[in-house]
């Protein structure tokens, strides 16, 4: 077991090393430099650009720049090109903003997808199943921002509530009830929108897993023993159908950065995705690289945890 864990960690560290090299190369080899963002600014003189380039080590060869990046990252000295703030602190602040959205979105996804998927599998071919299938395809086919716009207009016109941003300005001195309601309204749409695609995909997946399990021999045996139907489905069926979802859980984590760019931009949510988007616009290489690196770490940790959990949960897996 320990050997398995150690080997697993070792492999992941090697992967991480290559990921960092590749992402560093991609970002630095692409044309366009931080000093070129604002070429029409008359106050930018040639020697200023030279100074900036020297300060950010942009004139060094690529592998030296990589060493600088890694060194600064691990000593915590990495500064953003844009405002000279420490990168890790910037990302941490934004991460704290993204986290509630991610948690609420994930909860909505898992709590909706499982009942829908299980019901669809149990009543295969029924109206519920057909409508559910069609709706889930429709929901993954609609451009996310288009759906968000429709929902924003609907929410604002029907309920007359604010939905953009994290909170309403000027409510800082209001009562605790009013303030928390305001927060909840601001959370609702962004987390729903980021959960929509997840619900659609996951419920289909739950359905096909359940269908596969329900036709197994041990389910027939359980029924033949005369167990009540709920026990058969939820204790004997669902437990076995759940196994692959341990893997899926690890794979939802990169959504924290990649998937949220669009929604955080629409809802003006100061989270990690938007930080990444702003960094791309400003050619803020340290922030882009570090975000990429962190999300790769998150993926690797996620898959590592799910590998271990899989081995713990499934008695058929031996080391």
């Amino acid at each position: 077991m320990i050997q398995f864990v150690l080997k697993n960690i070792g492999q992941r560290l090697v992967l991480l090393f290559f990921i960092s090299i590749i992402s560093h190369a991609i970002v630095h080899l692409a044309p366009g430099e931080p000093s070129l963002v604002d070429p029409s600014n008359p106050r930018m003189k040639a020697e200023d650009i030279q100074r900036i380039r020297a300060a950010f080590h942009l004139d060094e060869p690529l592998h030296i720049q990589y060493v600088y990046w890694m060194k600064d990252l691990f000593t915590g000295n990495l500064k953003s090109f844009k405002d000279n703030q420490p990168v890790l602190k910037k990302i941490w602040d934004r991460f704290l903003n993204s986290l509630p959205l991610f948690i609420v979105g994930t909860l909505i996804t898992w709590f909706l997808a499982f009942p829908i998927g299980i019901q669809a599998a149990l009543k295969r071919g029924s109206m519920f199943d057909k409508i559910g299938t069609f709706l889930s395809y429709a929901l993954i086919s609609i451009p996310g921002f288009f759906l968000s716009y429709i929902c924003i207009i609907f929410m604002v016109k029907t309920f007359n509530v604010p939905v953009i941003g994290m909170r309403t300005f000027g409510l800082e001195n209001a009562g605790i009830m009013l303030r928390s309601m305001d927060r909840v309204w601001h959370w609702t749409l962004p987390s729903l929108m980021s959960a929509v695609a997840g619900v659609a995909i996951l419920s289909r997946y739950v359905r096909s897993q359940m269908l596969e399990v329900i036709n197994q021999d041990y389910i027939r045996t359980a029924r033949a023993k005369g167990l009540p139907e709920t026990t058969v489905i939820y204790r004997h069926g669902l437990r076995n159908a759940l196994l692959p979802f341990i893997t899926m859980f690890g794979l939802t984590i990169p959504g924290l950065i990649g998937g949220s760019v669009i929604f955080e931009t629409i809802f003006a949510w100061p989270g990690m995705g938007r930080l990444g988007f702003e960094a791309i616009l400003a050619r803020d290489f340290p922030v882009i690289l570090t975000l990429n690196f962190i999300s790769a770490i998150l993926v690797l940790i996620g898959t590592f945890i799910s590998d271990i959990l899989y081995a713990v949960v499934d008695p058929r897996i031996k080391f």
Partner: peptide, 12 residues
């Protein structure tokens, strides 16, 4: 597979 795909596409 470890790269956040949309973020990578957007960067490039």
């Amino acid at each position: 597979l470890c790269f956040p795909t949309f973020f990578l596409i957007l960067t490039v």
